[in-house]
Amino acid sequence: MTATEADQNTLRALEGLRSESSSVRLRAAMAIGTSPDPRTVDGLVERCAVEPEFSVREVLTWALTRHPPASTVPKLVDELGSRRAQARSQALHTLSKIADRRAWPAITRELLTDADDEVARSAWRAAVVLVPDGAEPGLAAVLATQFGRGGREVQLSLSRALIALGDAIVPILCAAAADPDPRVRRHAAATERLLRDPDSGFELAVEEAKRAVALGPPGREG
C-alpha cells in the first residue's frame, strides 16, 4: 500500500466515525484499530464522547488501546475535565483498559465521587487498575465514602472495586459497620461477605447483610 492509499484509508475511516449508520461507525473503528495511525486518535476520542451505541464505544476503546499510550493517555486525561458525562466515563473506561499508571494522578476524588453514576463507576474501575503500590488504603478510604450509593449495579461495582484492593479494605469495612446510616452498614456488610465468599453472589450477600443489620451486633438486646 502506498502512502497516498494509506492516507485515503485514514480519511475514509475518520469520515466513517461520523456516519449516521452505527454499522459504518463500527467498521470504521475496527479499521482504525486494525491499522493504527496516530492521526486518528483525536477522532476516536471525540467520537467516544458522543457515540450512543455501546458496541461501537467498545470498539472505539479497543482501537485506542491499539495506539501507543504516549499518544492516547494525554488526550484521554484531558477528557476527564469535560462537562459531558459520557466523555468522562468513556475516557476513564479506556484508561482502565490501557492500564498506564502514569494516568493515576488524573483519577481525582472529584471523579471518584462524581454525581453521575456511570462516571463514578468508571472511575472506581480505573482507579483499582491504576493505583500505585502503597496507595491502596487512601483509595479505599475515598471509595468508602460511597457506601450506600445508588441501586444494585452501582453498589456491586463499588464492592468489586473495593475487593480488588485486598487487605487495604479491612479497616474500612470495620469502620463502616458502625456507621449510623443503615444503608452504609448494609452495603459494607454485603461487601465483607462477598470478600469472604466470592461465590455467594451479591444478592445473597445483600440479603444476609440486611438481616445482620436488622438484628444488630452480637449480644445486643431489643
Results as ranks from 00 to 15, higher is better:
residue 161 A to K: 02
residue 129 V to D: 14
residue 141 A to E: 15
residue 152 R to T: 09
residue 148 G to A: 10
residue 163 I to R: 09
residue 167 D to E: 11
residue 167 D to G: 07
residue 163 I to T: 13
residue 140 A to T: 02
residue 153 E to W: 15
residue 138 G to H: 11
residue 147 F to V: 07
residue 135 A to S: 15
residue 151 G to M: 01
residue 155 Q to E: 07
residue 125 R to N: 12
residue 148 G to Q: 05
residue 161 A to D: 03
residue 160 R to Y: 03
residue 136 E to W: 09
residue 150 G to L: 02
residue 165 L to N: 04
residue 155 Q to R: 12
residue 158 L to E: 03
residue 149 R to S: 02
residue 154 V to Q: 04
residue 126 A to I: 07
residue 139 L to W: 11
residue 156 L to F: 08
residue 142 V to N: 02
residue 160 R to N: 15
residue 142 V to W: 05
residue 155 Q to S: 12
residue 155 Q to A: 11
residue 162 L to V: 02
residue 158 L to S: 02
residue 141 A to S: 15
residue 159 S to I: 03
residue 163 I to S: 14
residue 132 P to K: 04
residue 133 D to E: 15
residue 145 T to F: 12
residue 165 L to G: 04
residue 125 R to C: 13
residue 141 A to V: 10
residue 128 V to E: 05
residue 155 Q to T: 01
residue 154 V to N: 01
residue 160 R to M: 12
residue 138 G to P: 13
residue 163 I to D: 15
residue 134 G to M: 07
residue 132 P to L: 04
residue 150 G to I: 00
residue 137 P to Q: 09
residue 128 V to N: 09
residue 154 V to W: 03
residue 129 V to C: 13
residue 136 E to R: 14
residue 131 V to Y: 11
residue 152 R to C: 08
residue 129 V to F: 08
residue 145 T to W: 12
residue 165 L to M: 05
residue 165 L to S: 06
residue 130 L to N: 08
residue 139 L to C: 10
residue 146 Q to L: 14
residue 144 A to I: 09
residue 129 V to L: 10
residue 166 G to S: 08
residue 162 L to D: 14
residue 133 D to T: 08
